[in-house]
Design a protein around this nucleic acid. Structure first.
Lengths: 214, 214
DNA sequence: TTTTACTAATCAAACGTTTGTTTAGTAAAA
DNA sequence: TTTTACTAAACAAACGTTTGATTAGTAAAA
């Protein structure tokens, strides 16, 4: 599906509002007003409000297709470096599309699921976990990584930490006395902190450099 | 505030529906029907739909007051054991109140904030991080823990991982081939796995047993 | 060149439903 | 009698969607 300029404008406004107020909490009139279009244009272009959010997912999913994968397969890095690239790439992806990932998070919290959206999310999560699996197995093959690593929960920690950090960034600001920092600067600060934290976490957990297991 | 049996019944139904479909996605008629009461009882008892969710927060916050704190101050455990108690207690609390914490998560994702609820969440998060701080400082004081630990992000990883694991438990089931496991059994399984994973993660990250820093 | 036929984009208005809340009333309890 | 617990009905407002009309543009026919 290709979208014209006006359709993209509507989708982008909808994305911001859905992230702010939820799908049910956003009216088509809200979207129309902010996007400076007539209410009926949403039905005209997308068929329904429901199909608008599906169009949003279709668009964003189409964009993100395999950026990480190529990033990793080419270079000849050692396993822990590849893990670090994976971490930074996940941080960039989530922090750079906060609205969309906010909507994805809401969708996963909900039991009122749209099949096509559920499928999109499943595909994305599968891709993420398989990439992680590949990297960890590479490290294990050359004896650099521990044998018993819980793949699912390692992935859960990676994405759970980033998502939760984004969701609670106001609290983070306040706790760390960064309320006066400029927004753009704060975003960079948070990225760097997350990067350091997650790399340190993964390094000490997956590598073989320490005795483990209780 | 004290609530009678019927009020509690309404609150508990509302909690389940808000968790499933979101606040805006749940109508007062949905709640009334599932709770077998007249629609007007919600306004009668709580004043408004908005004040109903505030009552829910008031009730749940009142329940959870300082269970962990006492659990930790008494016993004479070594620092890493206290961290382990903290982890298990957080898992129990979040897994045992999935609906409520689902609503809390949604509330944090939203920018349409009710001041009293925001304040409740802030209080809870502050309590969590201060407890973590206390335990980590104890460990650092006797030289058992590393010096430079990012307190905020350690807490973010703890709660982020648990919350995300709960939100994506269907995916976890499928990935690990546990679709046929009975629900109660699965909940226990997930708790144990989370416990092992987080304890291993924290142990290797906060203790001094390895060289660190890049 | 002018006319005709057709299409896509846009609009204000209206449609029927559902929303949260209020009202007016009833019946039992105090 | 007054208070409390509860209800059915009604309310205005907001909801997603549809409608019929208008505009601007294109392309073939005259």
């Amino acid at each position: 599906m290709e979208y014209n300029a006006k359709q993209i404008q509507i989708i982008e406004v909808a994305e911001r509002l859905f992230a702010d107020k939820g799908f049910a909490g956003t009216s088509v009139r809200d979207i129309a007003q902010e996007a400076n279009v007539n209410v009926s244009m949403i039905s005209y272009y997308f068929g329904s409000k429901e199909k608008l959010i599906e169009a949003l997912f279709a668009m964003r999913m189409g964009e993100s297709r395999s950026r990480m994968e190529t990033l990793l397969s080419n270079e000849d890095l050692i396993p822990i470096q590849k893990i670090n690239v994976l971490i930074d790439s996940a941080i960039d992806r989530l922090m750079g599309n906060q609205c969309f990932h906010n909507i994805m998070m809401r969708e996963q919290l909900s039991s009122e699921r749209t099949p096509t959206i559920t499928e999109h999310i499943r595909t994305l999560k599968l891709r993420n976990i398989q990439l992680m699996q590949q990297l960890i197995e590479e490290g294990q093959a050359i004896g650099a990584f521990r044998k018993n690593i819980d793949l699912s929960l390692m992935t859960t920690t990676l994405y759970g930490t980033i998502n939760y950090a984004i969701a609670t960034q106001d609290f983070y600001k306040r706790i760390n006395g960064l309320e006066d920092m400029e927004e753009a600067e704060f975003q960079i600060h948070l990225r760097r902190k997350l990067s350091q934290h997650l790399k340190s976490l993964f390094k000490s957990t997956v590598t073989n450099e320490h005795h483990n297991q209780d």
